[in-house]
Amino acid sequence: MNENSEIQKVLHKFILNQCSPSETDAVIAYYRENKLTTAFPTVEDIQALVTQTPQMDAATANILFSKILKDGKEMENTASTSPKIPYRKHLAIAASIAILLGVGWMYQTRLKDQNNKAIIASSDQITLQLANGDVQIISGNTSKVTDSEGNVVANHNGNKITYDTQTALEKLVYNTIKIPYGKRFELQLSDGTRVHLNSGTTLRYPVRFIAGENRQVFLDGEAFFDVTKDKKHPFIVNADNLNVRVLGTHFNVSSYPEDPSTDVVLVEGSVGLYQKNEVFDAAKNTVLKPGFKGSFTKIGGVIDTKAVVTSVYTSWMEGRLTFRNMSFKDISKKLERHYNVTITNHNNKLDNEKFYASFDDVPIEKVLSYFNEIHGLNYTFKNDQILIK
């Protein structure tokens, strides 16, 4: 077996514990033939073969190898009776399998803890969860996105995933993408709808929309939607307890769990706002016009609307930060998401002060310098931790 894209794919499946028995045999055979003729495989060997493998720290590697060496001594008598695979190769095969399974276990344990926000916030990897719970890392410049059966359903190129419009599916199958703090990403769904995802955002969406069904997605965070028009299939964004219904338009939805309201800003077209347990009725429910923002309070379920400058709410797509009459407490939340930092503020008076400011795509030091100049902000910044005194 050559070291090509096929073995790369099998090795990646192996560390995720997704290999069939025959694929597992192929991995073992590969190491017998290519890696185990003279010495033990190292952690670096395996990481070189699987570019998407998370880093294993030295202490963990040493523990694994110590255990393998100890177990290997107990294998010596048995291994010495084997004419085909000498003791040294038995031990090396055990080492390679233990390393792969060890990395895979830590990898899956970290990724499948879906409810631990701290883990998501501290990670710098975009993850894609398939319908069966398997998780793929979205990294590198180009790659194929596969389903749980290994079929290609989308293409990943740089900072964007484009889903195949020809995927043959007869029922709804969902993927869930998670964008960590400090990153942004773009999706093109199977109907051509483009979705810009802000940092700290999770979106659950169908791999392919089904004829006769609404085009519904589920948002936790912030996204800008450029929806492909389809009068027969309304596009619905579910954001917590609010549904946003459109036929084809441009709009921004912000619904972070820690925010008191879900905000919908309409750039073009029209959108209907209604609670998720309701059936949409244009005569009764709130319908936004372009240039308006609808705010749905999470406690009370009240929808208020007002005219706004839409660019204030969409500038994040270009990496810009725009604050208009915003409290420092809310600004801090946006800075944490945008820069993947933690801000601890001991200046209680500062929390409720309102600011007007705009920043291009600049380092956070520039933003902190601005607040220092206009407010004399007393702070320390170390290891992504900002302490305001």
Rank of each mutant, 00 (worst) to 15 (best):
N159C: 00
D360H: 06
V153P: 07
L219Y: 11
I210S: 07
L130S: 08
P234K: 12
G140C: 02
N17S: 14
V264M: 01
D351C: 02
F381D: 01
F224K: 10
Q108N: 14
E76Y: 13
A154E: 04
S295E: 10
F14L: 06
E33V: 01
N252M: 08
I28N: 02
L172W: 01
N345Q: 01
N277A: 14
V244A: 04
N347V: 01
V217G: 03
L247E: 14
L172T: 12
L91F: 02
V145R: 11
K9P: 00
D281S: 13
G72P: 09
N157G: 01
N4G: 13
L128S: 06
A168N: 15
I343V: 01
A94C: 08
H196Q: 14
D351Q: 11
Y30W: 13
R208M: 10
Y107H: 11
Q136C: 02
I179S: 01
M326N: 01
I210Y: 09
V152T: 15
T228Q: 11
H250N: 13
G376Q: 05
P86R: 11
D71A: 04
V302G: 00
I303T: 12
V173W: 03
L377D: 04
G272A: 06
F14N: 07
A92R: 02
H346D: 04
K144Q: 15
K183M: 11
A282H: 10
A121D: 11
P290E: 07
D164H: 10
F185W: 07
G301V: 07
A95R: 06
T193W: 09
E278G: 06
S315R: 14
Q8A: 06
K284N: 10
G300H: 06
V302Q: 13
I46H: 01
N198V: 00
I236G: 09
P234C: 13
T78D: 14
A357R: 08
S96R: 02
A58R: 04
I28Y: 05
I68M: 09
N285L: 05
A223Q: 04
S369Q: 12
S295D: 07
E6L: 14
Y30N: 04
Y181L: 03
D351A: 10
Q55F: 07
A92T: 01
S255C: 13
Q188Y: 05
E213G: 08
N155E: 13
E336F: 03
T201A: 03
T81E: 10
Q216K: 13
T176A: 04
I179C: 04
P257H: 07
A61V: 10
T305H: 08
V135L: 06
R215T: 03
D147Q: 11
K171F: 03
S80M: 13
I93V: 15
I331S: 04
R245A: 03
E149K: 13
T228G: 04
E278F: 08
V173K: 06
V152K: 05
L350T: 00
R32F: 01
G133E: 06
R110H: 07
N151Q: 15
V253W: 03
I161V: 11
A283V: 04
F296W: 14
H196W: 15
H90A: 04
V264T: 13
K73F: 04
N372E: 10
S122Y: 00
S270G: 00
T146N: 10
S261T: 12
K284S: 14
T262W: 09
K389T: 05
